[in-house]
């Protein structure tokens, strides 16, 4: 048995809503950075979205990127300071709607940075509008009758987009259960290890509840992830050490 201490990188209580998955992801990222000895050399590029709420509570050097541009900002840092650990922390709207170009081009160039992408299927910060990841039929404040894919196109699966690219690491995890969170930690560790060994671009997408804008209790939110989200966005490691897996 070992101690389980809240990482020191979490310098203040988080500011997310009750049950928000961002809190779990914050803790897992903080644990991994501390365990890998990276707390002092990490620079984070922070998205616009609920991610913004981390700037004062998560104690690494941060740059607040414009909405969608976290990857480009992170690339600017990493290229001039390759010795730093550089990661982006972004929502799905930020990374996959307005910032899809920057996200994909960082992957296409196999930039040696780590992208953490929080898929909560919604624009959380702005009050629950449709995101690229919103499920077909899912109600949001801008798809009040449910997402009509004949108008909006299909939900965007970034793992599928990146799978064909020559990148270092690609995985999708979840925070919907203790088991998922333990696996997620392995993925996030593998992603940072990829970067620190010069293995190229690493991306971890994380399925995460937004109880506030899903207008569900946390319990219902977790059921929703289990029953509706995971079938569309399966979990697993898809690229490891630059090689495609069988997942």
């Amino acid at each position: 048995m070992v101690e389980k201490r809240i990482p020191q990188l979490l310098v203040e209580d988080n500011k997310f809503c009750p049950g928000c998955g961002h809190g779990n992801i914050n803790r897992v990222v903080a644990e991994v950075l501390e365990e890998m000895g990276l707390a002092d050399t990490t620079v984070g590029s922070l998205a616009v979205g609920c991610a913004c709420l981390m700037m004062d509570t998560f104690g690494v050097d941060w740059i607040q990127a414009p909405h969608g541009r976290a990857a480009a900002v992170g690339v600017g840092v990493k290229r001039v300071r390759p010795e730093c650990c550089v990661f982006t922390y972004q929502g799905d709207g930020d990374s996959l709607a307005i910032g899809l170009s920057e996200t994909l081009y960082a992957a296409i160039r196999n930039e040696n940075i780590t992208a953490i992408i929080v898929n909560n299927g919604i624009f959380g910060m702005t009050g629950g509008q449709m995101a690229p990841t919103t499920l077909s039929g899912q109600r949001t404040t801008t798809s009040p009758k449910g997402r009509d894919v004949s108008i909006t196109g299909q939900p965007l699966n970034i793992v599928n987009q990146c799978r064909q690219l020559p990148i270092g690491y690609l995985a999708r995890g979840s925070v919907a259960s203790a088991k998922d969170i333990n696996k997620l930690k392995k993925y996030i560790r593998a992603a940072f290890e990829t970067q620190m060994s010069g293995g190229g671009y690493s991306l971890v997408e994380v399925l995460s509840p937004c109880p506030t804008n899903w207008k569900m209790s946390l319990e219902k939110s977790l059921e929703h992830i289990e029953n509706d989200v995971k079938p569309i966005y399966p979990l697993g490691e898809f690229i490891k050490k630059g090689e495609k897996t069988d997942a």
Binding site: M1, E3, K4, R5, I6, L10, D13, N14, F16, P18, G19, C20, G21, H22, G23, N24, R27, V175, S177, A178, I181, N182
Partner: peptide, 18 residues
């Protein structure tokens, strides 16, 4: 004292300490 609550709590409520 399995600390699963530590793992799942999004708000850093639990710790298992000596």
């Amino acid at each position: 004292k399995c600390a699963i609550c530590y793992t799942v709590c999004p708000d850093y409520v639990f710790e298992r300490v000596k």
